[in-house]
Design a binder for these strands. Structure first.
Length: 739
DNA sequence: GAAAAGCAGGATATCAGCGC
DNA sequence: GCGCTGATATCCTGCTTTTC
């Protein structure tokens, strides 16, 4: 150790460390972020500075084992030393600075870390973020010049909470819009679609205010083939749930085939780029026009560029969709691709649609709260499971929360299916049967369960019985409806857009039942109607990009609007932390970087062995809940015909959404919004009043006008997003604002 | 020796809290 | 309702350090 060359050697090593942590001038922040790895850095440091490392090891040596990961500390020490030697040898500190900013650290915290040598100075962090923002914007502008993209946008609200209200300072909302650019995949080649894939003339021109949908009957009457395939999928879904939740059937799992595929999206990693947020409220026609213009400006797209690019999908929730429709309608005589919206193809978000579907099922089958009689979702939710009260039912003013609804449906469906198997397995002891059943036996029983408990036919059969059992009938309807929902959920995850469409076709009718959700019914109808008009190629790309997949894994598909909601969530985390001085300029700068910042945060956290996913998103075991429901179902004989059941005098029969909805669909005026108006042409004299259709299917203005506000809980249902971490960040952000 | 990167400190803005 | 204070943040400027 005490050799005369020691000082020399250690100085050389110091220089080597400096080189290791220095980057060439004008290095892209993105590259720096992507190439950063503490593990690699530790290995490199040991290689170039063995003496230094040896010193550190000796200094910290003690008897017994330390729990601390020494490598991490040594790496940090070396990085701190290097920045003392040369302030530009700060690769490590820059990453840490971005991490701190992304975590919502205040200026003074960053300043402390900067002085300690763990981070760069606050002003440098800001400069780097700005550089990053510009880099990302450049990238986006290049991407949109080459690939065929879609834009998604959604409203974002910031609540400004004022602690002491004054005339000039009250709680208020600031509405803005965030948007994302998404590269579209060409299903033919399974590569990103290039410019000109869908020329502008593929979009049928619009000549009237209303979006005209031709051939209503083919939409409303699904082909027999489709009905048969939907049946197959539903039956598969029923079997799958049974296998998943009955451990005695586990031996059959290996032989169990995957769901019949209707139209599968080939797994691929979807590239997405957040665009600058804008202080522009989309929720008016003017607002939507401004939003669209701003997006185009940010993308630096001109009309000529758009002609080269071809058609561009616009994704968003129902509100966005209907607003874009109105703009399209108003500007139908303008032939420019951008101003006349000639390039945009609307696509409504399936996530919001899925949530509505869950709400529809829960509301319809919620039953009468506080009713002593068994056999409703309220009974299962509140009475059996003692879950936190939630408001549901069509009468309820508040929308049922999606996460809770979804969970309830999941548990309840499993219980109903298992109880069905118990009834129809033809064996005294269900467990024994299950552990011995062969695949053939399982299939036979599954068919019985399906046909006796899960179909409209079963419902009709019971209703025609001499003495119909209302509780049983309600139960069959519920079973049928919840199975549709669950099939949609699994199909979205699996990325089989064909199956999604099959369910949507059913929902389109169901959501048309009086007092439900006509707007979604209209949206589905209109979208499917447009789809059947589109050229084959456009239709295919439309469908195959309706879902995105961030990981490229087979079961990793999700809805585009969910993506946008996640972006909004992250923007809020990072933005809220900035406290009083937040501005929309700042926000539009930071919003382009949010995924870069998030990646930096993940990287730093994983590097330092801090689990990113918090309590690793495991779905808590629900078998106890399922067991409790099955027991009660069995006890109360809910899923069997019971003649003169006492409850039947009290329980209201649930309306059949499907047949109620069909009544509407069978009307001549069905979806008249999308029919050509031919009745104003000739006056054939006065119509006999009795012939005039009297039922007023009051369209737009009823139903759920107010939009359901997503909660962090809803977003946390997504397994890929470490929202639990974000939750902590929000807390930090709030504490900063409060302090 | 020029250009780039880093940093400190002043200028400026915003807002809550407080007293009048 | 106004003006002051204190706290916090960003922006701007000019200086220093570093690198090629």
């Amino acid at each position: 150790m005490e050799s005369p060359h020691f000082g020399d050697r250690i100085q050389k090593e110091g220089d080597a460390i400096r080189k290791l942590l220095t980057r060439p001038s004008k290095t892209k922040i993105n590259d720096l972020l992507n190439n950063f790895s503490v593990r690699e850095l530790a290995a490199d440091l040991q290689k170039v500075a063995p003496t230094m490392w040896g010193v550190l090891t000796s200094v910290s040596l003690r008897e017994g084992k330390s729990r601390r990961n020494k490598e991490l500390v040594f790496t940090a020490i070396c990085a701190m030393l290097s920045v003392v030697r040369s302030q530009k040898a700060n690769n490590f500190q820059v990453i840490m600075g971005l991490f701190l900013l992304g975590s919502g650290a205040a200026k003074r915290e960053i300043a402390v870390f900067a002085q300690a040598g763990l981070s760069v100075n606050y002003s440098s962090v800001i400069e780097h973020v700005k550089a990053l923002s510009e880099e990302n914007l450049r990238i986006i502008q290049q991407v949109v010049k080459k690939f065929m993209c879609s834009v998604a946008w959604d409203n974002i609200n910031f609540a400004f909470r004022v602690e002491s209200q004054r005339l000039t300072s009250k709680d208020h909302f600031d509405s803005g819009t965030t948007s994302t650019l998404i590269i579209q995949q060409d299903p033919e080649t399974n590569t990103p679609a290039l410019h000109g894939t869908l020329p502008l003339n593929m979009k049928p021109s619009r000549k009237t205010t209303k979006q005209i949908i031709k051939n209503h009957s083919s939409l409303l009457l699904p082909p027999v083939e489709d009905t048969r395939r939907l049946d197959e999928c539903l039956l598969w879904q029923l079997k799958q749930v049974a296998l998943e939740h009955k451990s005695e059937l586990a031996h059959l799992k290996i032989q169990f085939p995957s769901c019949p595929s209707i139209e599968q999206i080939t797994p691929h990693v979807t590239q997405q780029y957040p665009l600058p947020a804008m202080h522009e409220d989309e929720s008016s026609i003017d607002g939507t026009i401004n939003v669209y213009d701003t997006i185009m400006r940010n993308l630096k797209l001109t009309n000529d560029d758009m002609k080269k690019h071809g058609l561009m999908f616009t994704d968003g929730d129902l509100l966005t969709d209907s607003l874009v429709d109105k703009v399209e309608s108003a500007r139908r005589n303008n032939n420019e691709p951008i101003e006349g919206m000639k390039a945009s193809i609307r696509r409504f978000g399936l996530f919001h649609c899925k949530m509505s579907g869950a709400r529809m099922v829960v509301n319809q089958h919620w039953g009468k709260p506080n009713s002593p009689w068994p056999g409703s979702l309220w009974w299962e939710h509140t009475n059996l499971l003692g879950r936190k009260p939630m408001s549901a039912g069509w009468q309820s003013k508040k929308s049922a929360p999606w996460k809770q609804s979804h969970e309830l449906l999941q548990m309840s469906l499993a219980a109903h299916i298992l109880d069905g198997f118990r009834i129809h397995c033809g064996h005294q002891d269900f467990d024994t049967w299950a552990s011995e059943a062969s695949m053939e036996e399982f299939n036979v029983v599954a068919e019985k369960v399906y046909h006796n408990l899960f179909t409209s036919t079963a419902f009709e059969k019971e209703s025609e019985a001499a003495e119909p059992d209302i509780v049983f009938m309600n139960n069959i309807l519920y079973n049928r409806d919840v199975l549709y929902y669950w099939l949609l959920v699994t199909s979205i995850k699996a990325g089989d857009i064909g199956r999604v469409i099959l369910v949507l076709r059913v929902w389109m009718v169901m959501m048309r039942a009086p007092k439900t959700m006509p707007r979604y019914a209209n949206a589905i109808f209109e979208t499917l109607g447009r789809l059947q008009e589109y050229p084959e190629k456009l239709k295919k790309i439309f469908l195959h990009n309706w879902l995105v997949n961030l990981t490229g894994k087979p079961n990793g598909f999700k809805e585009v609007d969910l993506l946008q909601e996640h972006t909004n969530f992250w923007i809020k985390v990072i933005y809220d932390a900035k406290g009083v001085n937040r501005s929309w300029e700042w926000l539009s700068m930071i919003s382009v970087c949010i995924y870069s910042l998030r990646d930096a945060m993940r990287k730093v956290q994983t590097s330092f062995d801090i689990p990113v996913y918090g309590t690793r998103h495991t779905i808590p075991d629900m078998s106890n809940e399922i067991r409790r429901i099955t027991m009660k179902l069995q006890e109360e004989k809910i899923q069997q015909h019971v003649s003169s059941r006492p409850a039947n005098n009290e329980v209201e029969p649930v309306k059949d959404l499907l047949s109620e909805g069909s009544k509407y669909a069978n009307k001549r005026s069905a979806f008249s919004k999308y029919q050509e108006e031919d009745y104003m042409m000739v006056n054939l004299g006065f119509q006999d009043e009795s012939l005039v259709e009297t039922v007023d299917w009051d369209d737009e203005d009823e139903g759920d006008e107010e939009e359901y506000q997503l909660t962090p809980e809803d977003l946390a249902m997504d397994e890929e997003e470490p929202i639990s971490m974000a939750d902590e960040l929000v807390d930090v952000a709030i504490s900063i604002m409060d302090s």
